[in-house]
Design a protein around this nucleic acid. Structure first.
Length: 195
DNA sequence: TAGGCCATCTGGTCCT
DNA sequence: AGGACCAGATGGCCTA
């Protein structure tokens, strides 16, 4: 039975992510429980699998302390889910930011910076609309959102910069690469000025 | 190979 | 007491 679990969980075909998510604490706890007193060392078997090694070390620590260990395992599980929720929220945030090439995924910090600048851009856009006597409703139907803009040029990874140029009929902002050198303009057009 | 990014574990702290 | 949140530590993957 253990061999089965082992081959399922520890297959070399598993990606690191698979290992991290599938080798949960309870499984390794099971391994430790069932192999106690035998000439078996999880550390030996999974040598080279860093994440799993960490789990084993943690489990052996937990094993030494009964109820405390059980609380730790539960806390780890909660923490794991908490971070997964946080990542899900970041994914949602990524999904509503201006579209980028398919294979580009903003890092966490880039996502937050991008969102910050994007909100700033939208705020400035609304301010411009107000200045021109448009209601938000009017304005929202008269501009082209960045998501609808033509973003066909290749961009490795990017975020909106904070230097915007706002004129009477359009607002330009820039998307910069990580090295700050690859510049791609994104334009909010006021359709009433586009002919 | 170094550095960036990431997932996870862990112990501490605060809150309910 | 137990859960949420946080920051530090660790190790894997990826890229320049």
């Amino acid at each position: 039975e253990m061999t089965t679990i082992w081959s399922q969980r520890m297959s070399p075909k598993c990606t690191p992510h698979d290992l991290c998510t599938s080798i949960d604490a309870m499984t390794l706890r099971w391994v430790c429980d069932h192999k106690a007193g035998e000439d078996f060392s999880p550390l030996t078997v999974i040598r080279g699998q860093g994440s799993a090694m960490k789990h084993v070390k943690h489990i052996s620590t937990c094993e030494r302390s009964g109820q405390r260990g059980r609380r730790r395992i539960k806390a780890n599980d909660r923490e794991r889910h908490r971070m997964q929720n946080l990542n899900s929220a970041l994914d949602v945030l990524r999904s509503i930011l201006p579209s980028l090439p398919e294979d580009v995924k903003l890092t966490k910090i880039e996502t937050l910076r991008f969102a910050h600048n994007y909100i700033w851009a939208l705020t400035e856009t609304l301010r411009m609309a107000d200045h021109r006597g448009l209601t938000p409703a009017d304005f929202s139907s008269q501009c082209v959102s960045p998501a609808e803009s033509d973003l066909t040029s290749p961009v490795e990874s990017a975020y909106v910069s904070s230097d915007f140029e706002i004129s009477a009929h359009e607002m330009n902002c820039k998307i910069l690469g990580r090295d700050q050198s690859c510049v791609m303009p994104v334009t909010f057009y006021f359709k009433s000025f586009c002919g």
